[in-house]
Nucleic acid binder design. Sequence first.
DNA 1: ATTATCTATAGATCTATAGATAATGC
DNA 2: ATTATCTATAGATCTATAGATAATGC
Lengths: 203, 203
Amino acid sequence: MTSARPSGPIRTRDAAATRRALLAAGRELFASEGFDRTTVRAVAERAGVNQALLFRYFGNKEGLFAEAIRDDALEVLEAGPRRDLLERTVATLFHASSAADAEPLLAVLRGASSSQIGAEVRQQLADSYVSAFADLVDTPDRADAVLRAELFLSWLLGISLSRSADLPGHSLDEVAAQAHLLRAARALLGPLPATLATDPPGS
Amino acid sequence: MTSARPSGPIRTRDAAATRRALLAAGRELFASEGFDRTTVRAVAERAGVNQALLFRYFGNKEGLFAEAIRDDALEVLEAGPRRDLLERTVATLFHASSAADAEPLLAVLRGASSSQIGAEVRQQLADSYVSAFADLVDTPDRADAVLRAELFLSWLLGISLSRSADLPGHSLDEVAAQAHLLRAARALLGPLPATLATDPPGS
DNA sequence: ATTATCTATAGATCTATAGATAATGC
DNA sequence: ATTATCTATAGATCTATAGATAATGC
């Protein structure tokens, strides 16, 4: 018998391990390739299991996607105090290559390319992020706060796509990019400048 | 607009008109569906021509895509003074539904989902936009200006995707969204605030 | 006996091509 | 005669399923 290893031998009958391997492989591929360009055979191959098992355990490709992004897509959201959410999210997005932590977030974002895939789960996750970002906006107008948060989430989506496609912007100074993104995000989510605010600057 | 055929049916032998119809149909579908989810049969059907003609005139699907986005993708860039580029681009993006003017821009952006499709043409167009946006940045550091412009283009991509998918953000107040986007874009592309600006390197 | 895994393949696309048909030009 | 258009289909995927095989539990 082989001694137990971290990623474990999959051939041995172990339904739970097979499920986990498929979920992990799915998350990786969905994050880097998007839903459409990820094939079930590629997921199964990466997981080291027969592709028929994907259907046995998840019904279909969309079932795997939904479960893969549901599991821990809120990880970033709950990885620290809400105060640091902006900085933490940006850092996660830009460090996707070094750590696998961003995969659920990326998978959610990239799933957006396929309009009807995992709609309810994806919508729910996107709403969670939008709601959390909206909480950072200091305004009594909730609709406005949500609008700004949605614009920010769109930005994260665009950046993640640009980096995985070969559009410009994937190979540049990441530290500077983070700084610029954070600065603009604060302008987006922060208080309106006095010239645009409803009441004029009193002092 | 969906089936507007200028002069008579396409059945009449007219290679030029057939080409134009395929290009127009391709632009529309590539803009709204992206490259992957657009089928050659759907393009041909929308153009009202036999699908075999697409291959006759453009070689393959990618050939159609490349020619479709090359034709007038720089339209927005050249539709007015560079001074107004930011405002004009944002307005074009948000008014995509009312006018077909944004289709080339959207097609370029959405083509980003498929990493290798029309790579050279797409890269060239993206570079044109990035370069134009970078020109708006008032800094002697060209690399930094390009970086900021790339982040902005990524934002446009994310917004266009969010609006065509069912992610949140597609049905909200567009006037307010434009205002927020412009404000944050100015923070991104504009001069750095004094607190963050450092001494010029090597001064 | 149960069920995790594997083999083999159906069925549905989708891109692309070969060759037939038919409308124009000479 | 040339060539734009159409028919029919090849060939390559890809998702999904039915049923065989083999490892575990009772």
